[in-house]
Design a binder for these strands. Structure first.
Lengths: 225, 225
DNA sequence: CTCTCTATTGACCGCATGGTTAGGGAATTG
DNA sequence: CAATTCCCTAACCATGCGGTCAATAGAGAG
């Protein structure tokens, strides 16, 4: 209950037109909505709940955001931010083999560290028919295809240099690799148990793609029977 | 539109107590609810919609099913039926290598043919926290773990007989294989494009697991570069 | 014909929801 | 100070929801 009433002077500085960066109620609302939407979904979250969670009147939410949908897409965009990573800078210095492995690792680590929002977007994509249409689906697909394209071209280069021993087409290999990664993702998201930690997964990918066998212990973790 | 009004005499035969098998309104309601729940989810589907879709009064639904939740779990159970397949009979006659491949193929074909319900269960598992608890989650997990266990033991046998060239632990190999399969599933469910048809996927699995290269054309479909 | 049991309905209820409105207080501006 | 603008609220409204109820039709049993 503790209605601590932290009024928080709310940093004017509005000055000329810099109406960004007001750490006031708007952000509080966004944060509340983010958690609620993520944990319960859109229809299962009421505006009153958001209001309560943000310690703000419901009407204020409708002052900041015209409708519930508008609040929702605002939350979407904010959640989407960390998905835009600049691969180029980090990869440019490595050779193809290392680039591929780093790319894979980044995928795995990202999923591990952003499990909540990944789960959220997955659920969103699943039952909105917005797939294909302009909207969330297209944005996510764009990111995904970008990643796949990068992976494909890297594999093609590696194949040309003979680093990559397999006889697949680069597209086929990339598709298979991505499938494996998505499989890790599912396993990670659904069974809380991280049956395959990123490092182990990465090792298996390395062996599959480059024929390298991790020297030392080849056991994976869940050796049970 | 065509409200064909197929009244369908509705087959009494109630006789003594066989109250199963009445292809009447109850089934119509279940069918309507199935599609609606699958396409929109639980909270987004109203009982009035179900009633309209089933061409039945709302009150009748509440006569057949006490609450909305009860209708929902009835739908769940009906959707879950095709998931119970008896692997044993079909696999017993083959050697390990063929058993594994057949198992994989069954997985892929099943996902392809039951995409809708798979999508539905996935969505359900995603944002209900019922994961782990008794309920849908546990049932699905049980099926999944059964499949994984079967796969693991088969791979172990194949490894003992030297059919399986890789140095993974059987658990690790099964986990990797399942991840790849789940990846196919994701790719298939989300991008409508079947970037990897079951046959192609199966071929890649075969090559990975047994080192066999499909004799003849090694292209899978999207051979481009 | 009447009694009963199953199947079905339209009308209704209380409630929570998304959204609105009228207004109040504080700061900025003239 | 008065006017304006921004931020914020309590109270309200219309709608649609899950769910109930009394009534009823129809088919068999006696």
């Amino acid at each position: 209950m503790a209605d601590e009433q932290a009024k928080e002077v709310q940093a004017r500085s509005v000055g000329t037109e810099a109406r960004e960066q007001a750490p006031g109620s708007r952000d509080e609302i966004l944060r509340a909505a983010m958690t609620l939407f993520a944990n319960r979904g859109f229809h299962e979250t009421s505006m009153s709940e958001v209001a309560r969670e943000a310690r703000v009147s419901k009407a204020l939410i409708f002052w900041h955001f015209k409708t519930k949908e508008e609040l929702f897409i605002a939350v979407l965009n904010r959640l989407l931010e960390p998905y835009f990573i600049d691969f180029a800078e980090e990869l440019s210095a490595l050779d193809e083999r290392e680039q591929i492995l780093r790319l894979v690792e980044m995928y795995l680590l990202f999923v591990r560290d952003n499990a909540n929002s990944v789960r959220f977007f997955l659920a969103q994509l699943l039952h909105d028919e917005h797939r294909g249409e302009s909207g969330l689906g297209s944005q996510v697909m764009q990111l995904y295809e970008g990643y796949r394209g990068l992976l494909t071209s890297l594999i093609a280069q590696a194949q040309q240099r003979g680093l990559c021993v397999h006889g697949y087409s680069s597209e086929g290999a990339a598709a298979f690799l991505l499938s494996a990664l998505n499989g890790f993702l599912i396993e990670f998201l659904f069974m809380g148990r991280p049956a395959l930690d990123p490092q182990h997964a990465l090792a298996m990918v390395r062996e599959w793609l480059f024929g390298e066998t991790k020297q030392g212990n080849p056991d994976g973790g869940q050796a049970v029977a």
